[in-house]
Write a protein that binds this DNA or RNA. Structure first.
Lengths: 139, 139
DNA sequence: CCGGATCCAAATCGATACTG
DNA sequence: CAGTATCGATTTGGATCCGG
C-alpha cells in the first residue's frame, strides 16, 4: 500500500502514447489545467506571495486537502515554490517560479478567450438543450 | 432515472460561485480542456472535416462511447458542427465551427508552451521525486 | 497554522453488447 | 457506419479527525 490518493505522482506519467504531432507534452499540462483548483491557485499566486491560509480563503470552496494536493502538484511540476518557516505556529509561503509565471500568462490567454466567447458558448448550450429533449438541465 | 452517465449536460452547470475577477467563464472551458479527449478531437478536426470512424482512428485509444460523448459535448458548446446523412450506411461529418477554430488556436498556444517547457517540467518532476522519498514513481 | 491520513460519495472512463 | 445502453473498475474530490 505505498500508493494512496494523497500521493502526487500517480497520474499522467505515461499512458499517452504516440498521438501524432500536435500533442506530445500537452497531456501533463492539460492534467494540471483539468483539475478544478490548479488554475485558480496559480491565478491567485500570480498576484503575489501567499500563505496556505491565504490561498484557502482566496479560493472559496477548496478544501484543505485539495489545496495541499494542488500546491504539492504545482511544486512538483516546478510551477510553484514553497518556503516553510519552522516557527510556532508554522508558516508556509507559496510563490510562482519563473516558469510558473509564464504558465500564468498562458492561463491569462485562456481567460481572455473564455471572456470573449462565454456568451456564445452559453448560447450554444441553451440552443442545443432546447433542440434536444433535455431533462437533465437546470430547473 | 432520467439522468445517466451518457447524458451530456450533467456537469459544470453551476457549482462555481463568485471567484473574484479572473475566472468567470473559464470553468466551462477548463472542463472541456480537462477531459482526456476533447483536445485531441479538436486538434484532429482542425485539420479538416472528419467522419466518426475517421476520428476514432485518428485518436488512438478512444472508445466509441467516449468519442460519442466528446463530440456531443463539443457540439453542445458550439465548437463543433455535426452533419448527418441518413444514407445506408449512415455517414456523419464533424467540422469545427468558427468559434471552434479560435478555440483550436488557443490550444495551439497551449501546445507551444508545453513544448517549450516540457523538459523543464520533467526535470522539476524528477528533482521533486528525488528529494522526497518517492515510492510511487517509475520502476 | 500547516498538512497528513482515513473514509466515503460521486463523476468518469472503458469494455462489451446491441440497434438502425 | 454511427450511435446507444449497461455495467464495473478506476479516479477524484470532500468531510473529518489527528499530529507537529
Amino acid at each position: 500500500m505505498s500508493v494512496t490518493n494523497t500521493d502526487v505522482s500517480s497520474q499522467a506519467d505515461a499512458a499517452l502514447g504516440p498521438c501524432g504531432d500536435d500533442d506530445c507534452g500537452i497531456r501533463e499540462v492539460l492534467d494540471r489545467l483539468g483539475d478544478r483548483w490548479s488554475v485558480l491557485v496559480v491565478v491567485e499566486l500570480s498576484k503575489g506571495v501567499r500563505r496556505f491560509r491565504e490561498l484557502e480563503r482566496a479560493v472559496p470552496g477548496i478544501s484543505q486537502r485539495m489545496l495541499t494536493l494542488t500546491t504539492k502538484r504545482l511544486c512538483r511540476d516546478g510551477l510553484v515554490e514553497r518556503t516553510a518557516y519552522p516557527t510556532i505556529p508554522p508558516q508556509t509561503d507559496y510563490r510562482l517560479t519563473s516558469m510558473g509565471r509564464t504558465f500564468a500568462d498562458v492561463i491569462q490567454h485562456l481567460a481572455d478567450w473564455s471572456r470573449d466567447h462565454k456568451d456564445a458558448l452559453v448560447d450554444a448550450r441553451a440552443r442545443w438543450d432546447a433542440d434536444h429533449g433535455d431533462t437533465t438541465g437546470p430547473s
